[in-house]
Amino acid sequence: MTRRSDRPRRRRFRIARIFGIAGLLVVAAIGLGLVYLLYPRPVLQSEPIAVETLYAQLESLQPVSAFDTIVEPRLRSVALFEEVGRVLQSPRCMNCHPATDRPTQTEAMWPHMPWVSRGLDGGGEANMRCTTCHQAQNAEASGVPGNAKWSLAPIEMAWQGKSLGDICRQLLDPARSHMTREELLHHMAEDDLVGWAWNPGGGRQPAPGTQDEFGALVAAWLETGAQCPQ
């Protein structure tokens, strides 16, 4: 410590001797530069900013009554299914009804990252199960969506790349949908895996309308003879 306090005096002495006026000017210039560089700048303080409420651009579904004007029952049923199709063909539903073994994700329906495959039970391969990342509910911090039944639809229920008419006929074919019409209605109207589509979390666009409205449309479609578009 004593050495340290001795030193500056010796140095100052040397500077004056070695540099004379020119040297001191250089030192002064460097000093001024440092003043400029190091001078404390004003720091912003917190101030109240009004909360901007962001209204999500939600899409609505037409109520069943909107189709009452269509008199012809077959046409009404088809029109109802087309409304139902707005939900079925939303990325929220399509992403887990892929045409390959790999689901898609996001509004753009890009292939799922990281790579995953349906596996034997639609729940993934070893180590890369759905549950490796997806929990029983949406996870807020990671933005990873979740549901207790998170899994892929069976390959025979692939919707991607299919027309709405084909999807319709597929739904009505118990060999492919593995559901009776009652089960179908239940899946659409009450299954909380399907219900996730209206509570997708992570800034995702929900499916149009609500699950209740959707269920009512499906019920009305079934009641009107479950007609399919071309």
Partner: peptide, 23 residues
């Protein structure tokens, strides 16, 4: 932080899980 990289993998009841995505 979004279950893309696997650096946070732990075993939950013996199964590998991404702990960043497990509330």
């Amino acid at each position: 932080g979004i279950a893309q990289c696997g650096a946070c993998t732990v075993h939950v009841d013996g199964q590998p899980m991404r702990s960043c995505s497990l509330p």
